[in-house]
Design a protein around this nucleic acid. Structure first.
Length: 584
DNA sequence: TAGAATTGTCATAAG
DNA sequence: GACTTATGACAATTC
């Protein structure tokens, strides 16, 4: 229904306009005072439109009262043992102290010396060892070793990540101490049984490999194996109860908080949760973000679009797209293109802000919500506000909007009446002021066209003022809607980001556990290798060397040496100091 | 009736 | 400098 049709309105309206206009002039109504006085008049006009016959008394006493009355415009699949028995040492697990098979005992030649074993394999083994050494460089804390070393000797690999149901978690035992206990196990390698063995008198260095060996990469650098396998007494501090304190290559990978996380993740996974759910579960235990990530209630769970990226295009495109079609200013989504309040009927096509199309706009109409349209959105069902206060008071007088069926069946009068009820205040004002074009045009036309339009009509100051206000308010209304949608979208994106980060965290946690597992396996291999090599060594008398007096050392040139323990210890200390010095 | 939610509006800053 | 856009704040209204 075009506004032009109103040009043929009753003469009473014209008189009213004249009165209003004259009043503006009399009052010196400039732009600055227009908001108040003009609004009052607009209220009066609206009142008049509503009540019709009351206009006669408008200029009289009723005007004041009327003015008084209307002035109010205005994440992992691993399980971890909770307790860490004094056990531990993978060395012991991998290398039983008592027994070397007779075959081995009789074999006085080390594989290294005999060459019966592939040099490549040995190299690989040493490389593995070096890898572990590198791991020591990591800032690790002993608590991680508790997990890794916790597996029962019988099944060191397969069970060390499972939490035995009957295994009590001793909260009173510090993780650090537990890990130390683990280290003590390493020295079972050098048990009295072994030490009681005849010790070679020779204190000379026994090269185990040719110095020109190429099988061992020289880039390994000099490495003292004792750092890994020797008793802590030799390395420094000792703990009587918990065992010697050796730098634990795995310590610190898992601190207590990490243990909690992993345990929680395990729990969640055991419960059948996916990593995300696990994360959420975790969050329930540790939630201080204040952000609710309950996707079941979050619009983000329904949306799939990018979000903020779309927001950048909103402002620049808004005016052009909107202005290009003033009559159908609403785009598919978003608040862009202004549409007057009276265009509620066009909601099927119109949803929103210009150029700004966040996903949620598909289900979250920012204004003029039709509760029926929200029914498909459970979490929005509670949103069914009928904000009709923006309508003219006259529109509020009557009851609810007629159902669509009524519109179809109803007469033109009913349609007109319905449309009238849908009109915004500005539209009512424009109507009252006989603005000869639609609010859509007023709001959405580009400046040039807008000015051109204005020039086509002989408009009074009051009309021009109202038109400018309508344009300003209309644009600001769209801007506000866009702004709110953008804000909402930002929140949704942030929630999505948090979920993604939690997913990443869970994944990294799983990878970490896998890494620790493989590291532990590697360490066990190295320990076995060391034990095997050392056990095969024999002095001139054919007797094995005492682990308490000798140690194997990997030299920088690729050779493996059997050196006196004291020397090994010294080198070990030097090795330890280097990293510390670097830190300084 | 209090409070949350929604929307329009104003003021202001910035482009 | 006019115009547009973005946004915080406030008020009105509904539920």
């Amino acid at each position: 229904m075009g506004w032009e049709s109103h040009l043929t309105a009753a003469s009473a309206d014209i008189d009213l306009i004249d009165i209003l206009w004259r009043q503006d002039i009399d009052l010196g109504a400039g732009r600055e005072v227009f908001d108040y006085s003009h609004r009052q008049k607009e209220q009066d006009v609206e009142k008049e439109l509503r009540d019709g016959g009351e206009q006669d008394t408008w200029a009289g006493e009723g005007a004041e009262a009327l003015a008084r009355n209307l002035l109010v415009d205005g994440e992992t699949g691993e399980s971890f043992p909770a307790q860490f028995p004094a056990d531990i040492s993978s060395i012991t697990e991998a290398v039983p102290t008592e027994s070397e098979p007779p075959a081995l005992q009789n074999n006085l030649l080390s594989p290294l010396l005999t060459g019966t074993e592939s040099p490549f394999d040995l190299e690989q083994q040493w490389q593995d060892l070096m890898s572990i050494m590198e791991m020591q460089a990591m800032e690790v804390n002993t608590s991680a070793s508790e997990i890794l070393y916790n597996a029962p000797p019988g099944d060191p690999l397969s069970t060390n990540y499972s939490l035995a149901p009957n295994t009590p978690i001793n909260q009173n035992v510090s993780l650090h101490q537990a890990s130390l206990g683990g280290c003590s196990q390493d020295f079972l390698l050098f048990s009295p049984e072994v030490e009681s063995l005849p010790v070679a008198s020779s204190s000379t260095l026994l090269p185990l490999a040719p110095s020109n060996s190429t099988s061992l990469n020289s880039t390994f650098g000099s490495t003292n194996l004792t750092g890994l396998f020797f008793p802590p007494q030799l390395n420094g501090t000792a703990n009587d109860t918990a065992g010697p304190e050796l730098p634990d290559p795995l310590g610190g990978l898992l601190d207590e908080a990490m243990l909690d996380e992993i345990s929680l993740m395990d729990l969640a996974i055991e419960e059948g949760f996916n990593p995300v759910q696990a994360s959420q579960l975790e969050e329930e235990f540790d939630s201080d973000s204040g952000l609710s990530l309950d996707s079941s209630h979050s619009p983000s769970s329904l949306s799939s679009s990018e979000g903020s990226s779309s927001s950048s295009s909103s402002s620049s495109s808004s005016s052009s797209s909107a202005s290009s079609s003033a009559s159908s200013s609403f785009s598919e989504e978003g608040a862009v293109g202004y549409s007057s309040d009276s265009e509620t009927l066009d909601l099927e096509e119109a949803e929103g802000a210009v150029g700004y199309q966040p996903e949620y706009s598909k289900f979250c109409r920012m204004s003029y919500q039709d509760p029926a349209q929200l029914s498909c959105l459970p979490y929005l069902e509670h949103v069914g506000h009928n904000h009709t206060y923006n309508m003219a008071p006259s529109a509020l007088d009557s009851a609810d909007l007629p159902p669509p069926s009524a519109l179809k069946k109803g007469s033109k009068e009913k349609q007109a009446d319905f449309l009238d009820k849908q009109m915004s205040r500005d539209e009512h004002r424009a109507r009252a002021m006989k603005i000869p074009f639609t609010n859509d045009k007023i709001i959405n036309l580009p400046v040039e066209e807008f000015n051109e339009l204005l020039s086509k009509y002989q408009l009074s100051e009051a009309q021009l003022s109202l038109i400018r206000d309508i344009r300003r308010r209309g644009k600001n209304k769209m801007a506000a809607q866009n702004c709110r949608k953008r804000k909402l979208d930002t929140i949704l994106n942030l929630e999505r980001d948090v979920e993604d980060l939690q997913r990443d965290k869970a994944r990294l946690l799983r990878e970490k556990v896998e890494f620790l597992r493989s590291l532990r396996q590697m360490k066990q291999k190295v320990q076995s290798l060391y034990q095997e090599v050392f056990g095969r060594l024999r002095d001139e008398n054919g007797r094995p060397y005492s682990p308490s007096q000798y140690a194997l050392q990997y030299a920088g040139d690729g050779s493996v040496l059997l050196i006196p323990r004291t020397m090994a210890d010294q080198q070990a200390r030097r090795q330890e100091r280097k990293p510390k010095d670097r830190r300084k």
